[in-house]
Amino acid sequence: MHLPHPRGPLTEELLGALRSGIDDFYAVLAAAPTATGEDAALALWVLHELHYRGFGEVPEQLEWDPQLIRVRRVLEHDLENRLRDRFTAPEGLSFVEDVFDWIDGHEGPSLARHVHRDADREQVLELFRLRSLYHLKEADPTAWVVPRLGVRAKAALMELQYDEYGAGDPNRLHHHLFAEGMRASGLEPAYDAYLHLVPLEVLEQNNALSMFGLHRRLRGAALGHLAAFEATSSLPSRRMAQGLERLGFPAEMVDYYAEHVEADAVHEQLAVRTICAALLEEEPELEEDLWFGAFTCLDLEDRFARTMLARWGVEEEVA
């Protein structure tokens, strides 16, 4: 895994410093508060990545460098504020009872619908390249939440995660299934391979997930995001699988989506009825953060879908 190209003054400083092998990041810290857009998002993505697999050219001990953590916090604070500014908690609803209807009542553009009927092969390949940033570490950010939970919520989350990780069989591990699908489709299954292509919206989807996972304080948001993510996957995965068959994509990639039709029909129930329900029994004060996480999941996906449909000159298709 290699460091990406900079996208502005902050990433110029940060990536230069990481490459140079020095451990003085004051100039990076000075540049952080004024960074915006893709520059800020890419910097945060790089800093989060130090907690996943890291970069070959960056010393491993920098994962916990206090100055870099400080930079991360400045960027996360800004991201969290922007996400919370977009969110209004629904009134009079119970998360466990009402979240499915709340999601079904949400009207947003649907990339799966476009892939199902109208997308061409190049558009779908582009989508895979951009989605690979998350799909190649699918479920990983949520794994960080496990030790922050009480007994029931912890066991419930592991029941879901166990399936995400192939129930012990590496061949069935979900991000490996996507990697196999990419390889069979002629793409490179490495999570830095297409980093230079991803727009702001994809960086922010990934950054929000990592931030929710890395902060114990945000465990409610992480699990709300999980519930919304799983609850918007089954039927769209069916549309994706049928669209890929229409376009003659290899069986490995069709299988990745076919697996998610049935897996996520289970996971959406587990996420809401066992994981979030147990969390609320143990920590009822986290209900608003469950909604915040769920809203953020839908909101960030809407923004990504709008960007792609506009790029392809497609009129918005509402799910």
Binding site: D163, L235, V261, E262, A265
Partner: peptide, 19 residues
């Protein structure tokens, strides 16, 4: 480990739930 069995009779993956 956990399976969702269709109860609405309209799943395209019957007998498994597809949402």
């Amino acid at each position: 480990p956990v399976t969702a069995v269709c109860r609405c009779d309209r799943s395209a993956s019957f007998p498994w739930c597809d949402g």
